[in-house]
Design a protein around this nucleic acid. Structure first.
Lengths: 142, 142
DNA sequence: AAGGCAAATGCAAATATTTGCATTTGTCCC
DNA sequence: GGGACAAATGCAAATATTTGCATTTGCCTT
């Protein structure tokens, strides 16, 4: 989905209300390529709306992530970053511990795991990310 | 490793100093089966030493985890829990979103991933955990 | 268009966790 | 055993994030 109308349609189809904050958050993420954190998104909404609270930002980022519209990645410095899930499918990431570059991984381990290993758990969500040093940062530190 | 002397030997072999705090943390985790959070471990050390600061606890839990003596798991309520890595090998976990029960997974996705997919990253660490509802909690909510 | 209800929001307080810097401690070497 | 140096610690302040509760808003029904 690469336009606001589709994103909004999907949001409401999932039972969420279409609020002014959510519209601006989605618009902001559409405008800006790459990843943003809650602070940046908060600033964007402030600049394009009247006034919004940080907790609203966090709650909306959670909601949008939970229905798959956003990808969330936790950086090694413990700050969460978000981006529109253009891939639209479920996927994971590879993050550089030095420059924080984020690469996509098509691979999802949950699809490969033996259901027997899941101890009869249901509604299983997969949290999976890899952290290493990208080629550029390896060069720099030589 | 199931005794203090082995744990301590390993700690020093990795270049870490053997401090009073670390000894008590390891002893505490040896005594208590299962998982503990920083608050509980802090309380244990306070009760068995003179006085220790929370940041020291966190720094030591990080250090012990980074050399593989401890396993760390992040619960859905965003609290980290720690336990001795008896399995001694690298492994992952399956956590109940309701009762927070933690099961071990022998599976590590990093071992299966195609090196080509790693974009030339080096020293890659794998952060992988599954979150779902265990059989007991499914029954309870029927 | 008006009313009602649940969902979304604002606010303020609390959470776990991290960090910089000055001090203390453990270990290695003599 | 004593001294030196780096690593570990204490302290206080800062971080991102979450939560409870009262209020507001979006959306559905009439």
């Amino acid at each position: 989905m690469t336009n606001l109308a589709d994103l909004e349609r999907y949001l409401t189809s999932q039972g969420y209300k279409l609020t002014r904050n959510r519209r601006i958050i989605l618009q902001g993420l559409l405008n800006k390529a790459g990843w943003s954190n809650a602070r940046e998104i908060h600033a964007y909404v402030l600049a394009h709306n009247n006034k919004v609270n940080f907790s609203t930002i966090y709650r909306n980022l959670d909601a949008l992530t939970s229905i798959g519209l956003l990808c969330r990645v936790e950086r090694p410095d413990a700050v969460n970053y978000y981006t529109l899930n253009h891939a639209s499918g479920h996927h994971h990431h590879l993050i550089c511990k030095s420059c924080h570059k984020i690469c996509e991984l098509e691979f999802c381990p949950l699809s490969l795991i033996d259901p027997e290993a899941l101890h009869n758990f249901t509604e299983v969500e997969c949290k999976f990310d890899l952290y290493g040093f990208c080629r550029e940062c390896q060069e720099k530190n030589k």
